[in-house]
Amino acid sequence: MSHCSLFGRALGLAILLASAASTGSAFAAGASETPSGAQGPHALAIDIPARQVWSFAGPFGKYDPAQLQRGLKVYREVCSNCHSLKMVAFRDLMSPDGPNLTEAEARAIAEAYKIKDGPNDAGEMFERPGRLSDYFPWAFPNEQTARAAFGAVPPDMSLLAKARTYERGFPLFLLDPFIQYQERGVDYIYALLTGYTNDKDPNWDEYFPGHKIAMPNPLSDGAVDYADGAPKTVQQYAKDISAFLMWAAEPKLVERKRIGFRVLVYLAVFAALLYLVKRKIWARLHNGASEAHRAQPPA
């Protein structure tokens, strides 16, 4: 992350929020930029994932449809060979807040998958092309097959971006809610995917607790072909798949932040009005206005 974008992020937050939290954000974003090495209570030295710039961070964050579409391509061509995505339906790909595919595009992706259905009138299970209402199928018929193949079951990816995190430590964890840092999961996934730094061992990862990870380095430069001119590098793939997984885990994020802004503006106005009313009413006590309904002391 460049210093320029870091500054822009902090400045943007400061302007947008115009609250006490904004000063904290500049400090915290700067502080978290430097990986501080192992400071957690765990004995193993694990590097702290660096904070990345994401389009969906902050109070007005939105997913970048082009990025999600690239991430979807990475998922389909790389991750889906082992990992399921069982909570995402093909219809979800049409979400305007998400990948924003046309119905024809989403249908084409759905039909590329074989979905097990049945039983038919003869009592037999059969396979048919996917429909929009279907969910992404898994490459394995069941967990046992996957365990037999890999020795471990590759986790479902639907919620991975919310199910992974790392230790922030004191006092950063106290600042996080006020600077709205909710991207620990994706920062960790990005760090993990770019953390295969040991050339001799494809199962060694800088950011994985214990460093020995069952999944060998899944990405390599040029492995997935991008049509939109984005760089075909491991960094870019990691970035795009992480963003895609964040969308898969939190598809209502954009709607949530959009409604949230309106609700908070409303509450701020309402609270200000109530404060004025409260001041007005309590002022009666000081300016000697008549108190027709003064209370009785308790008996």
Binding site: Y266, V269, F270, L273, L274, L276, V277, K280
Partner: peptide, 10 residues
């Protein structure tokens, strides 16, 4: 006006 506005906003 203040009371009515507050009530209306509520």
């Amino acid at each position: 006006f203040l009371f009515i506005a507050t009530g209306a906003v509520g």
